[in-house]
């Protein structure tokens, strides 16, 4: 399957799962299960930064239009799309691994730990920025911290389950073939 088709299917599936499955679950007022931003974490390595930003904006805006609050998720998505390349550069192990593989995964990042750090950092940034924007009007610092932390834990749990359920086969690409 080509990368374009795969990502279009992911775009639609992640939005539908977020809006019609995860948003219907009321765990606790402090916890909102978010999984949709995994789409941005899984974008291909070789995509240009400008396109990543634009796609993240469109993606966040799509979720916002389902929730009738324009701007919130778009802002958080654009932020993680901007930070993503820097984080990949920091965490990628050997020279050129981002050219041998298509997209970030446990295999292409060289082990569970770098991938987990990559996911965890972006999740905290996404949730932190989102809840900060939401709480702008009535600030309660401890409420904000607790909500960010608890939601991050749930999101990470969901991401791990997703990774275990849907194994992404990734071919090792070389120039020599």
């Amino acid at each position: 399957m080509s990368t374009l088709v795969k990502n279009i299917i992911r775009f639609i599936l992640f939005i539908l799962v977020q809006v019609f499955v995860l948003d219907k679950i009321h765990l606790h007022q402090m916890v909102t299960p978010y999984l949709y931003f995994l789409f941005i974490l899984w974008l291909p390595f070789n995509m240009s930064r400008t396109w990543q930003l634009l796609l993240a904006f469109v993606y966040g805006f799509t979720l916002d239009s389902f929730r009738h609050n324009p701007g919130f998720h778009a802002a958080a998505c654009v932020l993680i799309a901007y930070i993503r390349p820097y984080l990949i550069n920091l965490l990628i192990p050997q020279e050129g691994a981002d050219e041998n593989y298509e997209e970030p995964s446990i295999k292409s990042m060289g082990g569970f730990l770098p991938y987990f750090i990559y996911v965890a950092v972006l999740t905290i940034i996404h949730h932190g920025w989102l809840f900060l924007l939401e709480a702008w009007q009535f600030g309660n610092v401890w409420y904000f911290f607790a909500k960010t932390l608890l939601s991050t834990v749930i999101s990470l749990l969901l991401i791990i389950i997703t990774e275990l359920l849907f194994v992404r086969k990734q071919k090792f690409r070389t120039n020599t073939v």
Binding site: P70, A74, A75, L133
Partner: peptide
Amino acid sequence: FFLLLQGFCIYLI
């Protein structure tokens, strides 16, 4: 471009 998009989001909010 990033700042522009963020600014636009906050304007929307």
